[in-house]
Design a binder for these strands. Sequence first.
RNA 1: GCGGGCGUCGCCAAGUGGUUAAGGCAGCGGCUUGUGGCGCCGCUAUUCGGGGGUUCGAGUCCCCUCGCUCGCCCCA
Length: 438
Amino acid sequence: MAEKLQSLRGMVDLLPASIALWQHVEATARDHFRRARIAEIRTPLLEVTELFARGIGEATDVVGKEMYTFLDRGERSCTLRPEGTASVVRAAIQHGLLSQGPQRLWYGGPMFRYERPQAGRQRQFHQIGVELLGFADARSDVEAIAIAWDLLAALGVGGLALELNTLGAPEDRTRYRTELVAWLEAHRQQLDPDSQARIQTNPLRVLDSKHPGTQELLAGAPELADALSGESHERFSQVRHGLEALGIPFTLNPRLVRGLDYYSHTAFEITSDQLGAQATVCGGGRYDGLVQQLGGPATPAIGWALGMERLVLLLQQSEAQPWMAAAAPQVYLVNRGERAEAVALQLCRELRRTGIAVELDASGSAFGKQLRRADRQGAAWALVIGDEEAAGGVALLKDLRRAEETGDEGGAAPDRAGPGQRLDLAEIPAQLAHLLAG
RNA sequence: GCGGGCGUCGCCAAGUGGUUAAGGCAGCGGCUUGUGGCGCCGCUAUUCGGGGGUUCGAGUCCCCUCGCUCGCCCCA
């Protein structure tokens, strides 16, 4: 036998058994966005590398060491998208969407980051995200967060916490950054190596360090909040009050710093304590400078993205799993014999045409075997066609659930529901449609 | 990129250097060659992720490699 091939590391197959849950999430999200008047946008998985270098920031880990980047046959540097925002903004600029007024957009699909795989973290992973382009008011921050929060609630995810912070205006951040770097340099010797390395590249991220010694030291560091302008303060308080008015609970986390350069003002994460190290289910914030940075008109914006794999992980842990319902066939077509098989194939098509989920047994094995499979698959009804029926233009209809309801003696001889009801082939589609509707 | 744990049939899983690699689930076949859910019987790994080594002998020990997993890092 030839050597077996495997998927690439961190590239995961979604098998039929888990697809129902994914579709449930996608359908819920789609409907949620429809009602929120947010339109879907689909962008290519592959973009020019510069889009991410310029949009996300050269100094970030995502761009610096996690991208799938290669030269195509035309020697262009291409990158598999590591996130969705840059592409959406690029598309909005490229097609002049912004000159048609504010845009409310959502997207979903695979993203790629070359990281060490872990629970809730794959190299190809999936996000659903929302971008509100052309919205400056603090109310849009509140609305964006509410949309995320309500979507998760609609999906029945429990135990979530919303963490909130503000990064201030870009000027605030620049001012604070200078202050912070000076302080960090003064305490360089007491910092862990990772943090030392970040002083120049991405000093704000030092605040988020999990190193205990560094955290302790940081208690004496300058606070971003103190560097905020009055205006930024006011804005943040509007966001907080807005959330309070909606009854959405949150905690302030001054250490919450986004990894991507384009964020300013509001930053937030929705986390779960059930996910281990990768606790963030949804993260986002305001990015007023990005559109301009990518060559578009100055456009304020806010957005977020949620991680599908992490969400699915949480949903799999929950008790009620309503999405598991609909996998069974409604009708199982038992058929055997040359004439019967031809008739069954045709009947199967007609039934499917009327909207019924029909499993056609193609094994040609004994009637008993076929019925057994019908039962194991959880079919509601079985249609039995042998050559006798085929010759007479009829089929036998059996209710596979009736006997189960009446005879639950547990271990007693099966209480079979008789040979079934004899029906004309021509009447079957209508009859079944009626039965299944009732 | 750095550390720790793990890797036996599609899934779960016994096995801790010595004769033919348990068992359960699922699948397939039979008892029942035209009738389901229970039951019984049988079949399904010359092989223990892959490669090399130690040994008279290895799934069991060692090395390398691939993969999974947990943490660091990063982030959704």
